[in-house]
């Protein structure tokens, strides 16, 4: 599983790389585009996702100590869905500005949609797997591996959040 996660890191690699390039060569455009992001929603979403990792970890612990992980798994799914819901709202409300952006700002939006979009796809897959686990909660199930995947998605977001939401907020 860890080998798979290493692959995933490098899958996100070019996106991060494009972002760093943009930050280095077009700092103003990136900062001003970043000001259009919804900080409150982004922060809320970060908190939600971090909490979902917490419930996921509790689910694993429950299954390892012979208790039913069901409740924790469903909570995790719920938090994941909440994240996607908020993200979806953000996407639609930012769309018109993104579509009319030009130059470096267009580049920022492109990266923003591509990177968080890829992240959202991963999360959706994660939600599907965790729901499947919760539906047929038996003990020999791969909760541990799924947990690793879920935490990985969380870690990716931990970096995406400051990258896209927190540029020069004081300006």
């Amino acid at each position: 599983m860890w080998a798979f996660l290493a692959t995933e890191v490098l899958f996100f690699g070019p996106l991060f790389f494009g972002y760093v390039h943009g930050r280095a060569f077009q700092p103003e455009a990136f900062a001003s585009a970043s000001h259009h992001m919804h900080v409150v929603l982004g922060t809320l979403n970060t908190a939600i996702l971090l909490t979902s990792s917490f419930t996921m970890a509790l689910g694993l612990r429950a299954s390892q100590t012979d208790r039913s992980p069901r409740l924790w798994l469903w909570l995790t799914v719920l938090l994941g869905l909440a994240f996607l819901g908020i993200k979806g709202y953000e996407y639609t409300s930012e769309w018109s500005e993104a579509a009319s952006a030009a130059g470096g700002e267009a580049r920022f939006y492109f990266l923003y949609y591509a990177t968080t979009g890829l992240h959202a796809v991963h999360l959706a897959i994660g939600i599907a797997i965790v729901s499947w686990l919760a539906l047929r909660a038996r003990r020999e199930m791969p909760i541990e591996v799924t947990g690793l995947y879920w935490h990985f998605i969380d870690i990716v977001w931990v970096f995406l959040y400051p990258m896209f939401y927190l540029l020069e907020r004081y300006g």
Binding site: P14, H21, F110, A114
Partner: peptide, 20 residues
């Protein structure tokens, strides 16, 4: 995976006319 994502970006850039 680096190739996969890079080619994806090329395809996206080709479709939308914006990219990195």
């Amino acid at each position: 995976p680096v190739l996969a994502m890079t080619l994806t970006l090329v395809a996206l850039e080709r479709v939308f006319g914006i990219g990195i």
